[in-house]
Design a protein around this nucleic acid. Sequence first.
DNA 1: TTAATATTTTAGGTTTGTCTAAAATTATTT
DNA 2: AAATAATTTTAGACAAACCTAAAATATTAA
Lengths: 233, 233
Amino acid sequence: MLNYSTSEENYIKAIFHLQRHDETVTTNELANELKTKPASVTDMMKKLKVKKLLHYQPYQGFRLSSEGSKVALNIIRRHRLWEFFLAEKLKFSWDEVHEVAEDLEHVSNKKLIDKLDEFLGFPRVDPHGDPIPDANGKIEISKKICLTELPFNTSCIVSSVSDQSSEILELLEHKKITIGVKLEVKKKFDFDNSMEVRIGRQPAFTISKQLAENIFVTSSPILLPNGEGKRNK
Amino acid sequence: MLNYSTSEENYIKAIFHLQRHDETVTTNELANELKTKPASVTDMMKKLKVKKLLHYQPYQGFRLSSEGSKVALNIIRRHRLWEFFLAEKLKFSWDEVHEVAEDLEHVSNKKLIDKLDEFLGFPRVDPHGDPIPDANGKIEISKKICLTELPFNTSCIVSSVSDQSSEILELLEHKKITIGVKLEVKKKFDFDNSMEVRIGRQPAFTISKQLAENIFVTSSPILLPNGEGKRNK
DNA sequence: TTAATATTTTAGGTTTGTCTAAAATTATTT
DNA sequence: AAATAATTTTAGACAAACCTAAAATATTAA
């Protein structure tokens, strides 16, 4: 695996994430994601195409090649292992780890990362509930769905939150919604797409459409960073 | 404390280290240390002068200002804490930590470093025996002297090795000379400046001038990374 | 299906950090 | 003290990664 600049890595990673939603990623989407200008994106896309990391024809958008995906998974592995380290060992809170890991992820010494992985006990998910690729780039894809897609009277386990702003984290903390918590969807209202959910035996409460759109869940139990993954069914 | 680029940090750190030997550092010395060209050094010196990190008059060499020294100590703190982490937690060997720490030291998040320091138990020296500055930039200066400066029939404790090449480390390993070991200088030969030393009750052996020049010692015991600092005196 | 609008690319410029080659300065010899 | 040598600085170029403004292409609407 060759080495790439911090800037190249940030583009690759952003394309990887955007690809989860769209088949092909556009110049504007990427410029917006990276807080840069469309012209800069085009420059970089030409560069990454020459390096065979993505498929790209002018005006047609782009997607990562298989080599590009490999590189992306490697960056994501580094990012999530550092996030786990920061939360578990250095006692950073859930919402602080992302920013710090953004810098650490670009230190691309394979031995460092593999030894870090071992030191941490080969964790499977990061503090946001996202899976950590292994040394070969393999990643466990737990069929993660958006809370809005869940039928009523269903139980699920909170697996990740897409938005990392402090505003949403404040709201989640207030409602006591954390990764690994078992949620039961009790009612859904078509008028405003809000829903009522319940945690355990506590009284049900309301979640807005905007909040629900950012909460992702699985039906199977999740392994929490501290190994106390909650089991159900 | 402002943020500096990786390149700026490498220059500042190199000047700091060169200053230990010379009063003022020259363009060629620095170019050689950083494996760059004298013209590049001059460019950077102008930049760092504007930022008030060093004193510099054309053709007169340079030295760090007090602000520059503060920045340098901060970089060295990061470097040595990561070295300690790599050796102690990730089980890297003594001679591998420097290279990896060269990359990690440039992640300049203060909270990260202070929490890392705490996680490691506020270590006082790195795996090479060099002292780690604290959060305020304070550093313990144990009067460290070169083995060549030691009179004969003196005992001392190996504190650090200036050259980090694998060649010297191979030789040190063969002679069983490690940080913290108590050495007795038994004889010194003026002809080739070699010396005979002894470890404990074992038979004395010869150390060349070249090797002795790279071994630094103290008369007081050293705190080893694992806390098992050997006591003598 | 043309016209208007939005998106994307190109062209050319900036900054950072590097380089080579030539000029300026300092140090060393004779 | 002048000549030679070494060091340092300047001048001008280059690559990476970004920018703005204008041109090219694609999409949408009339």
